[in-house]
Amino acid sequence: MDFLKILKSFEEFVYEALTWVILLPRTLVRTLLHPDRMTAYAAHELARTDDARFSDAVSPPLLLILCVLLAHLFDLGVRAQVPDTSGSLASVILASEETLLLYRTITFGVWALAGAAYVLMRARQPVNRDSLRQPFYEQCYLVSPFALLLSISVSLLLMPQSWANLTSACVTLTVLAWFWVAQAAWFRRRVRLSWWRCFGAAAIVLAVGGTVNLVVGYLLAHTAAGAIASP
């Protein structure tokens, strides 16, 4: 009986994974072209009580995880150099593919969490596990292509070729502009602020997420791996 349950679970996983071949690129393209529609779609699907939620798209958190995974595979294929982090906490994270993927997912999730928390505070709503879910899911749709393209641009930046550096700069500027405008439009729909305040709020979210990641990255790179084990 246990063996049959394992086979059934494996069957469901294989089918789900194969549907990603169609749903993943379609969800990404729809998000890039119509980010406001996709955030509204996330809110609509979360309100459903049946089992058919997100049946025609990849769910927002899963999309973020898959985008991080795709960016990681791209990084493995093109990276020419790896930063020297020997002896630091960063080396512990980089030593395992699982922890590295988890770390990258969380780092990009910081932007989604910052956007969700900001809109709740702006609307004077409580910030808790339940209230964060809907805006966080909506934010995950916006953060996913941002995570994929920004990670690819960083990987290109580590390549020695001049064309790679130029491409990295163009991709970075493009995805930052897209994310900034998409965030501003989302704030406009959620909290009904003026456009200039929405763009200011989007800039704050970008700055908060970037600052948190820079600080955490600096601490990981400059903290000895044995420090956390010391009494």
Rank of each mutant, 00 (worst) to 15 (best):
F199E: 02
V215S: 09
S88D: 06
T107M: 15
L176H: 10
R122L: 10
L142Y: 07
A71L: 09
A169G: 04
V215D: 08
M38P: 01
P231S: 12
G226I: 05
S88H: 08
A57L: 02
Q139Y: 08
V143S: 07
E97H: 09
E97D: 15
Y15L: 14
V119E: 14
G109A: 02
L28K: 02
T31S: 07
E16P: 03
R188W: 09
Q134I: 14
W196E: 14
A207L: 15
M121G: 15
S91D: 14
S9Q: 11
G210M: 04
Y41I: 00
P35R: 04
R104K: 11
Q134Y: 07
P60C: 07
L73F: 10
L148Y: 06
I22D: 06
T105Q: 04
V29S: 00
L66W: 07
D51F: 11
A147K: 02
A229T: 07
L113I: 10
F199C: 09
L142S: 07
A17W: 04
D51K: 09
L32T: 05
A42V: 06
G109Y: 01
D36I: 12
T105M: 08
P61H: 03
F54G: 02
R129K: 08
R190D: 03
V175Y: 00
R104L: 12
R124T: 12
V92N: 03
L69C: 01
V191Y: 08
A184Q: 10
Q125G: 04
P25D: 09
C198T: 14
R133A: 13
T39W: 02
F136L: 15
L70N: 06
T49Q: 14
G200W: 10
Y218A: 15
F108Y: 14
F146R: 00
Q183D: 14
G209M: 11
K5D: 15
R124D: 15
R133F: 04
S91Y: 03
R53Y: 03
S9I: 03
V58G: 05
L150M: 07
C67V: 02
A185K: 13
S59H: 03
V14A: 12
L66T: 02
F108W: 10
T211G: 13
R188F: 10
A227C: 03
N165H: 13
L100R: 11
T167G: 15
V58I: 15
L120E: 10
L173G: 06
A123N: 12
T105W: 09
F179R: 06
A164H: 06
K5P: 01
T167W: 06
V212A: 15
A227M: 12
Q161K: 07
A169W: 08
A184K: 10
L101N: 08
E11R: 12
L89D: 05
L63V: 00
Y118R: 10
A90E: 11
